[in-house]
Design a protein around this nucleic acid. Sequence first.
DNA 1: ACTCTTCATAACCGATCGGTTATAAAGTCT
DNA 2: AGACTTTATAACCGATCGGTTATGAAGAGT
Lengths: 215, 215
Amino acid sequence: MTTCGPRNPGRTRGNLLRAGIRLFASRGFHGVGVAEIVSEAGCNKRMLYHYFGDKEGLYVAVLQAVYARMEQVETAPLPPEASTAAMICEIMQRHFHFLATDNEFVKLLLWENLNEGRLLARHPGLLTKAPILHQLRTILEAAQSRGEITAADDPRHLLILMIGMCFIHFSNQHTLRQAVDLDMADPHIQAEGLRLAQQMVLAYLGLAPPEANGV
Amino acid sequence: MTTCGPRNPGRTRGNLLRAGIRLFASRGFHGVGVAEIVSEAGCNKRMLYHYFGDKEGLYVAVLQAVYARMEQVETAPLPPEASTAAMICEIMQRHFHFLATDNEFVKLLLWENLNEGRLLARHPGLLTKAPILHQLRTILEAAQSRGEITAADDPRHLLILMIGMCFIHFSNQHTLRQAVDLDMADPHIQAEGLRLAQQMVLAYLGLAPPEANGV
DNA sequence: ACTCTTCATAACCGATCGGTTATAAAGTCT
DNA sequence: AGACTTTATAACCGATCGGTTATGAAGAGT
């Protein structure tokens, strides 16, 4: 497409990375050829090998870049004076909204899982511990010390279910549409799904919903 | 591998289908070559084109075969005299157990979603409505008519969350392992995840857990 | 001005891709 | 026995795959 001009190191690398993110997310590692990537990046095939070593090198860089987008969103501090229920709803809403916004993240995560984490295994440290787990732990411990909740279950299991209730809306969009006849891409449907998920977690913890609805 | 012998129509077709299920599930449509499939099926490449037309034809047959496995499990009748809570737990346990057992189903479903349902769109009727939705609807309506529950939310949304809480354990096995440091392949971890998911749904519906635990 | 590293291109490589052609043996029907 | 359909094989096809070689221009250091 847009040629790279005579010399422009940063831009060529950036173009390749962006093209890689878009194409790998949309069709996976095996589904994309390097010729297509360099065509979209507007440069020669040799440049990919110059900047990233090989196709897999670009793929790793793509994963790093997209994981960084999640960390950036999920490490944002929470409103310190909010109620426990409000904080639970907030981190769920953040996670849900991030998945809804960053389709490329969702797809790359799924590709990597389908690949049985082979790339992740070969490049340890690519994916760090979920920052959201630390937030949830802090919230639950504080609530427990104040006697607001009694359950002492492993917060990791609770987090998995919270993530699962969000993730399903985006990971299984197309098959769910056929299976239950709901358009998961519709923001209204998504909002309803999030609302129900939040209610479910609050009900499990025995917390009343925050002031918005519960009076 | 095992050669097909002089003539054996059913077996060659079956071998190809089985090989296709295993290989497409493990590496997706683009990740597998026809040469590899026929090698595992123990027959010549030409046979694949004879029985299934082309590579995509085999892929469609694979999806059909694996979807049929789910329908078979999830249309089994429920114990008619059980409590509402027990029935909810039962359908969740069944769904969870099916996903835990049939890894190929989980992966093929994810491949197809990542492919944005292109195959599903090209072959309508391949995936039918989820039979589990009908079961859930029946349970909820009966409970509602008996006044056991009050919520009149769309059962489709509840089902999505139930599926999501089960699915996440298998769809994101490898990345979750790194993100929250839990081995999702461990049956004990899985059992705990299911237990928590069941509790969550029951808590949301305002139902006491069935006799097993609640006394 | 001279060298040296970096950024870039075009042409090309062997291997593999999905799919086809040519051919024939095994079974089936009359 | 002879004709015809079905099941099978081997060899091959053009296209494309990921990756390399050969080459040179642009910028930086001296």
